[in-house]
Design a protein around this nucleic acid. Structure first.
Length: 634
RNA sequence: GGGCCCGUAGCUUAACUUGGAUAUAGCAGCAGACUUCUAAUCUGCGGGUUGGGGGUUCAAAUCCCUUCGGGCCCA
């Protein structure tokens, strides 16, 4: 059977073949009964279909399995079938798999047109512009950027935005500090976001406690920012921009880039809410309550909200708009539902060569790309805002009726600190608690830059020790790549629903499945491939030798990579890729120590080289999705 | 008071969407493997009442109910 050219995914062909032979309606039905073989049982995979069929048809499981065996016998994918207690245990036909994979695996292996160029907007990071990023923010950014890489990889047209709340109290606090309390505006040799966040912000908040009159100053500053066109507003604009640039330095260090910066103040200035409000009124989507406890309020009528007791209030009886109101207007903009758009100009050129744009109140650069009006928006925002985000999501669903608009709240649990780490940060009131939440205001957090520096230092020493022939600069480059890889991998390998309890000592020991392990695997692969000529690499695999168990293992891992990517893209679940790549590296290292490549028998060499090169393609593509920077030596 | 999430080995975790054989790995522990393509590695061993209880089922970590522990949101 020839694999269709339209798919680069051999697993798809496999499931389709199985579907036909098993007489099932869909490939998903096949997957339901498909089990990768666990250890201690014969075969590469098994079907559990017979266990169900037997009951339905009144025959024994083994009889049902015999029927299935007959149907599958002719499949080119399968070499052997054995029945045990109703399980249909199958062995892959590796010769066939390898022959097909040889046609499919290249630098782009795993890429697909799954997304069909559909436009998607991902918003992530969105850190208040008054402080440095801490490791909790990095979870957000690492998830967001990996989602960007993943969706782009499977053929979506993705725009990435970073939303800046430049009108909030946090910015005002810093201004109270530098403008009225005599804090210097910066400190020589200290990154601005560190200085303002670590010193000014924390100290000003301490001073509020002993001097409540200062709160009036803060209100004053907030009002001035909101009104605009005054000295304080200009000052704030400047400060926000400078802190943002400092934050972006950290993010660029993490290899994270954006297409657009959105400012909250611009949403206000462009009066998006007023436009949205009129549109909502016109559509009859909101209602003015004339009596009851919500008298005088404008409420949104959402089905999903009814179960939780009430319709969502959007405008309070005193005329003020709730937070979700602005969020809905902004989400309407994202999905092209708002009859209004920003003006844009270029903010900076990033190190990846791409322009970073920003919304602006000034004259526009008319050559800007289209940013909004997407079908799907992925909003990486921590799980504490689930309720509000649900409201927004429901609102977009309702307003975009029939347009298949998807506003996705990509919620993730926060990064908290372990007891030990909290103690190290000088928290006195430890009590019985095991988990401590980070707080910018209280100064309880681990800055991303600081942690990266610590990782870098440790990894540099290790690299220095192990690579006598490398110079210092090269060692530092490797250490930096490993540090970034380690931090980012830690943030995406866990299920986003689980809280990460960060322990600084444990993190620096890197005892768990780490990026260093994956990078080491990649370095081993590179080291083999560096030693062969391009002619050798392109040798035709005319003979596929008898494969050992390690090789078979790697083949089946290579086989499933596109499937893993696609299911990660479907579910936006990056941990699937992280688990896959961890299994993959394990399989490669087992292969590596047992199976010579460069010193293989002559007739085995072309196949082994192809295999190693294929592993490189898979490992490189998979790790890059996770934010790992592959190193060819370490 | 109302709602959401988490609980699997000492630690970190997979499988839960769609129920299937002996529950997946890593770290730590123990015992081994470098004159060999990088030992930041590999091989083997020990370690589990899947928080507890009940139910559904031929079959439950997985589905349902209940309870305990931890975290969060709303009021």
């Amino acid at each position: 059977m020839a694999v269709q050219d339209s798919t680069k995914n051999l697993m798809v062909s496999f499931f389709e073949d199985m579907r036909k032979r098993l007489g099932l309606p869909t490939a998903d039905e096949v997957k339901r009964y498909f089990k990768k073989q666990i250890q201690g049982h014969e075969g590469d995979f098994a079907f559990t279909l017979a266990l169900r069929e037997s009951k339905k048809n009144g025959i024994t499981p083994n009889e049902a399995a015999e029927n299935i065996k007959k149907n599958l016998a002719e499949s080119p994918f399968i070499k052997e079938i054995k029945i045990v207690n109703g399980y249909v245990n199958c062995w892959f036909n590796y010769n066939f798999l390898v022959n097909e994979l040889i046609k499919l695996v290249n630098e782009d292996y795993g890429k697909s047109d799954f997304g069909k160029k559909e436009r998607v907007m991902i918003e992530h990071t969105s850190v208040n512009p008054n402080k440095a990023l801490h490791i909790g923010h990095v979870r957000n950014s690492a998830l967001g950027d990996s989602l960007f890489r993943l969706l782009k990889f499977v053929g979506y047209d993705v725009t990435v935005t970073n939303y800046i709340d430049d009108t909030g109290a946090q910015v005002a606090d810093n201004i109270v500090g530098t403008k009225f309390l005599g804090f210097p505006e910066s400190r020589e040799g200290v990154k601005l976001d560190h200085y303002l966040g670590d010193e000014v912000y924390v100290k000003v908040n301490e001073m509020y406690k002993s001097e409540p009159s200062l709160m009036a100053k803060r209100s004053e500053v907030l009002k001035a920012i909101e009104h605009g066109n005054n000295e304080i507003a200009e000052y704030a604009k400047n400060m926000v921009s400078n802190v943002l640039i400092a934050q972006l330095q950290t993010l660029y260090r993490l290899k994270i880039h954006y297409n657009l910066i959105n400012y909250e103040s611009h949403i206000l200035a462009y009066k998006f809410w007023d436009t949205a409000f009129k549109q909502l009124q016109g559509l009859g989507a909101i209602k003015f309550e004339k009596e009851g406890e919500k008298k005088g309020c404008w409420v949104f009528l959402l089905d999903a909200m009814k179960s939780s007791g009430d319709d969502k209030i959007l405008v309070r009886s005193d005329g003020t708009v709730v937070y979700a109101g602005k969020d809905i207007a902004y989400a309407m903009w994202k999905h092209g539902l708002l009859k209004s758009d920003f003006r844009y100009k270029v903010f900076a050129k990033q190190e990846d060569g791409e322009k970073l744009w920003t919304t602006t109140l000034d004259a526009a650069d008319e050559n800007h790309p289209t940013f909004n009006a997407v079908k799907q928006s992925v909003n990486v925002i921590d799980i504490r805002q689930s309720y509000e985000q649900n409201v927004v999501s429901e609102a977009i669903k309702k307003l975009g009726e029939g347009k298949d608009l998807r506003y996705i709240h990509y919620g993730y649990e926060v990064v908290a600190l372990s007891k030990n780490t909290a103690q190290k940060l000088g928290i006195k009131d430890i009590g019985n608690k095991e988990v401590f939440h980070m707080s910018g205001r209280k100064g309880v957090y681990i800055n991303a830059d600081d942690f990266l520096d610590k990782l870098h230092k440790l990894l540099y020493e290790e690299t220095r020790n192990k690579n006598k022939t490398l110079n210092d600069k090269e060692c530092h480059e490797i250490a930096e790549k490993l540090a970034v890889s380690t931090l980012r991998y830690e943030m995406v390998r866990t299920d986003p629903k689980n809280m990460i309890v960060f322990d600084i000592d444990r993190a620096l020991k890197m005892e768990e499945k780490s990026a260093a392990y994956l990078n080491y695997t990649y370095a081993r692969i590179s080291s083999i491939l560096k030693k062969v000529s391009t002619e050798d690499l392109s040798l035709k695999v005319s003979l596929i030798p008898e494969l050992n168990e390690h090789e078979k293992n790697l083949i089946s891992e290579i086989l499933r990579f596109p499937e893993v990517v696609e299911s990660a893209a479907k579910t936006l679940d990056l941990a699937i890729i992280a688990n896959y790549v961890s299994d993959f590296a394990l399989a490669f290292n087992s292969f590596y120590v047992k199976t010579p490549v460069l010193k293989a028998e002559k007739e085995q060499l072309p196949f082994r080289l192809w295999l190693v090169n294929s592993c490189k393609n898979v490992l490189e593509n998979a790790t890059i999705l996770l934010g790992i920077i592959p190193v060819d030596r370490m």
